[in-house]
Write a protein that binds this DNA or RNA. Structure first.
Lengths: 154, 154
DNA sequence: TGTTGACCTCGACATTACTTGAGGTCATAC
DNA sequence: GTATGACCTCAAGTAATGTCGAGGTCAACA
């Protein structure tokens, strides 16, 4: 894809990014990018030298992957979350919005878990109480359900 | 350690819990508990048959480990978070409080990451904009810092 | 008395998420 | 014209977080 000057990022980048450029701009390692591609989380085209070239909109996808990892969402879940976002062209406004609804659900769950734990640390644990029965930390779903895994009262 | 009736949890549990009881009450697998012990995250004594016996206050520790896992905190970090909480006796009020301050810091960081991502999904991504420069998602620490790993502007 | 069920150890296997290394291509820089 | 540096593939290795299986002990129950 046109010219390529070793190592340094072009002052005026064109519409396609090399793997090194994507790596530099997203913070993801080159090897990780190839790995994500193998998983189908991102995609690239090849130039006449068989080198990967990424459209700009892929940066956003990689950024989302990085953030999701930071908050502990497994890559398999990401595949699902990305299901309706096209790989081969810049996603439309509508497409991003549809995908983002699924994301928000996941995020909200996680945020709520954390908020509950924050509250617990101020109350239950802070007070040093030993009453397990009322401890929301030991019953994080606010259920004492008899089936399935998870903490329960016995 | 006194008597033991196969399988079932005793109606009137004494001060020491078997590994099976801890597993049932915390939702952590027996194998996981042995693994946590190997890592030094929890501890047990042995009875005259060389079986693990857990003091009650260990339940809280295991519960914290389970929750931390759910929100993506690695076990190594937990070791740090537990550093000042004694393993060999019930932690005092003061000790739990000191540890909980460290926990709250970690939790707050994580919650903020998530909140920021939630905001991004409503704004930046929802709008489909392509302006990478202003995108907090690509600059999650609100810095465009030149050193270290992570997304940056180039 | 024999069987069952909970526990023990230790080592191998599994999964996720990558990284590293060997061996090779190609264009630009000196 | 050779050295360098970015890229390629493919296979193997690594770290974290466990699970599983084999082989064994022991108390309680039928």
């Amino acid at each position: 894809m046109t010219s390529y000057r070793s190592g340094e990022v072009r002052a005026r980048p064109d519409d396609w990014l090399t793997i090194g450029e994507v790596s530099a701009r997203t913070g993801a390692a080159v090897s990780a990018l190839r790995f994500y591609e193998e998983l189908g989380l991102i995609a690239s085209e090849r130039d006449d030298r068989n080198q990967r070239r990424y459209p700009r909109h892929m940066l956003r996808r990689v950024a989302l992957i990085s953030v999701a990892k930071r908050i502990g969402i497994p890559l398999q879940d990401l595949r699902e979350a990305f299901a309706d976002v096209p790989l081969d062209r810049p996603p439309s406004h509508r497409e991003w919005q549809r995908a983002s609804r699924g994301w928000k659900r996941r995020l909200e769950e996680r945020r709520q878990t954390i908020e509950r734990l924050e509250a617990e640390l101020t109350g239950c644990i802070g007070c040093g109480c030993l009453s397990m029965r009322a401890c929301a930390l030991l019953n994080p779903d606010d259920t004492l359900g008899g089936e399935g895994v998870g903490p329960r009262r016995v």
